[in-house]
Design a protein around this nucleic acid. Structure first.
Length: 586
RNA sequence: GCGCGGGUAGCUCAAUUGGAUAGAGCGUCGGCCUCCGGAGCCGAAGGUUGUGGGUUCGACCCCCGCCCCGCGCACCA
């Protein structure tokens, strides 16, 4: 909140002193250390360097033009040229009072809303959702929620895997080996079983492979029976997806799977060839480098045995089939044409980096005018490892199903709830365990820097202290309970008084909620918000420790209740951005 | 081989992208319950940021070399 006000004022002052300076380089952020002040700017040192000036002297000149008397009690130049701002208590209290009246929650919706398409989750039809889908799903959902809260127009699109060669085997399996009763009981399990069985049979006898291939050709040719079976498989899969998404609280605006783009793929390839972007190579159609960038930066080049060779993007296989690159190009074109987004975010794992670099590059060459207006971002993430440091699997080496993972999380959380709160009724214990269990899985996933691999640990994610979902949820519950117990007598109009260091520390951190939200949105890094909330939780806990709330005298009591109320609201809103629920009792 | 990541406290991870004294949790050690709040709070010890150079007021972050680890490198997605 204040960082934006101060930044605007500082930019104005810089402009008066150095009219040519780039305003974007002038930034104000919360102080790294509260002893130094509440906000700081490091911009003057950079400006001085660029202009060959003495930084402290320049800082002095800018300070002379800076008008912040209404906001700050002190502004100082420190060290080599840091600017330190100390907020005036009245200004701080005024903003807290506004928030308490419900005028804002320490952030303002953006003035220039963007249209952002987010592509995430993308499970495959006829397969169970598994651990590999957690990060994409949880991260994508958190980004969507946060960007929406900030006022952007967000379109979420689940690009499910509902087309491809695997359907040849699935169709053959459906026709020859389907157990109807098993399909009734556990449709995905049965689809998985027939797929595995046919897959195995294919390796043993060539005839089966040919049969599967024939089924695929029929499907692609529009055979009605195969289309019917295929649609039924999608329907059954969607039921499973919806069940998992329901538990995770994730929803999509669109589910346009790969098959949606089928009608355009042939024309797309022809067009790319016609435009001279793609050409035939070993029977396949591929896009080669156009040499417009140095080989080192060219995603369509690779160095092998000491020399640069082509690393083309295949858009049609030699058998006439299409690749996922073809679909990705068609998808991109469709999204731009349909929604005119300013950004498209692809939330997938890091192994697909080179693929997306290639697709983006090829698209820019194919449709330069469409590509010019949109920022394509691959929001990639690392893998989830087991405690042995290897990819996270069951003991027997199988992939872990997402539904079962959530079951276990809730079950383990229930164990803790029963131990800590034996006084609650079973239904209530179960509800708390659900909120805590699912929240813990999500938070563990969002807390690490998304680009690093992380180690999955039940004990750590469900721990009651430390940077975990249960801890944050608990701190919310404490704050909410104090507010409930305090009654709401006049608290909306309460004057804010910051008498102790703990109150002041809590208050100044509350002010920075918007800063954390923005940082998360701009960099697609939920860990910024996680760490902000964790600090808030710690500060609020220290505040309760030092400051009696309900037992204090008015007007302090109302002021402190208001701080509790604001803390609860920020924690709840922040956790909601992460897709994490809270409970009024824990 | 080339590309993309990573290497930070005993362990698991941060460090808002070049800022001030590198921070948390766990573990270890030591404290705090006649509390509105214990699923809590406070404190201590613990670091040559893989390694050797360089750039500058300032480097975990940028540049160069080297050592480990993971992932990816035509017709799977």
């Amino acid at each position: 909140m204040f960082h934006i006000l101060l930044e605007t004022r500082l930019k104005a002052a810089v402009h008066l002193v150095m009219p040519d300076a780039d305003p974007a380089s002038v930034q104000v952020r919360p102080s790294s250390d509260s002893k130094l002040g509440d906000y700081q700017s490091n911009a003057v040192m950079g400006l001085a360097k660029a202009a060959g000036k003495n930084p402290r002297q320049l800082a002095g000149e800018i300070l002379g033009r800076l008008e912040v008397a209404d906001l700050c009690s002190a502004v100082e130049v420190a060290g080599p040229g840091f600017l330190n701002f100390r907020l005036a208590e009245a200004a701080m209290a005024a903003v807290l009072e506004e928030a308490n009246r419900g005028q804002h929650l320490f952030f303002e919706p953006v003035t220039d809303p963007k249209t952002v398409v987010i592509d995430f989750s993308s499970p495959n039809v006829a397969k169970p959702m598994h651990v590999g889908h957690i990060r994409s799903t949880v991260l994508g959902d958190a980004l969507a929620r946060t960007l929406r809260l900030l006022g952007h127009r967000v379109i979420t699109d689940n690009h499910i895997g509902d087309w491809g060669t695997q359907f040849g085997m699935l169709l053959l399996g459906w026709k020859t080996r389907l157990d109807r009763a098993a399909l009734e009981r556990d449709s995905i399990g049965e689809l998985e079983r027939i797929y595995k069985e046919i897959n195995r049979a294919c390796e043993l006898e060539a005839g089966v492979r040919d049969q599967a291939k024939a089924e695929l050709v029929l499907l692609q040719g529009g055979d009605e029976r195969n289309l019917g079976i295929w649609k039924e498989m999608i329907r059954l899969s969607q039921i499973q997806f919806d069940a998992v998404y329901g538990r995770l609280g994730v929803r999509f605006d669109h589910t346009l799977g790969e098959s949606f783009y089928n009608p355009w793929l042939g024309g797309l390839v022809k067009d790319l060839v016609l435009e001279g972007v793609a050409r035939e190579s070993d029977g396949a159609i591929a896009v080669f480098s156009d040499g417009s960038v140095p080989a080192k930066e060219d995603p369509l080049k690779i160095q092998r045995d000491g020399e640069w060779q082509d690393q083309p993007l295949l858009i049609q296989k030699s058998d006439g089939g299409f690749n996922y690159a073809t679909t990705d190009l068609a998808t991109l074109e469709h999204r731009i044409r349909t929604w005119s987004p300013s950004d498209i975010l692809y939330v997938t794992d890091g192994r697909q980096q080179s693929h997306f670099r290639q697709v983006f590059t090829v698209f820019k060459r194919w449709r330069p005018e469409a590509a010019a207006g949109v920022r394509l971002v691959h929001v990639w993430f690392g893998s989830i490892l087991g405690e042995d440091g290897r990819p996270f699997k069951t003991r027997s080496g199988d992939t872990i199903k997402l539904g079962e993972l959530l079951d276990e999380a809730e079950e383990r959380a229930l164990g803790v709830v029963r131990e800590k709160r034996p006084d609650l009724m079973e239904v209530e214990q179960r509800e708390i365990a659900r909120v805590v269990g699912v929240g813990a899985i999500k938070y563990q996933d969002l807390l690490p820097n998304r680009q690093s691999d992380y180690t999955f640990s039940w004990d750590k994610m469900l721990a009651l202290n430390g940077n975990t979902a249960p801890y944050l949820q608990y701190q919310y519950t404490r704050a909410a309970k104090l507010v409930r117990d305090g009654g709401d007598g006049g608290s909306k109009e309460a004057g804010i008084r910051l008498e102790t260091g703990e109150e002041r520390a809590l208050a100044r951190h509350l002010l920075n909620f918007g800063w954390a939200l923005t940082a998360m949105g701009e960099e697609q890094r939920p860990n910024y918000l996680c760490n902000y909330l964790y600090e808030l939780a710690g500060l609020s806990s220290r505040f309760y420790e030092a400051c009696p709330v309900l037992k204090s005298e008015e007007p302090l009591r109302s002021s402190r209740l208001a701080l509790c109320q604001l803390t609860a609201r920020v924690l709840k809103t922040g956790l909601d951005c992460l897709g994490i629920e809270v409970s009024d009792r824990m």
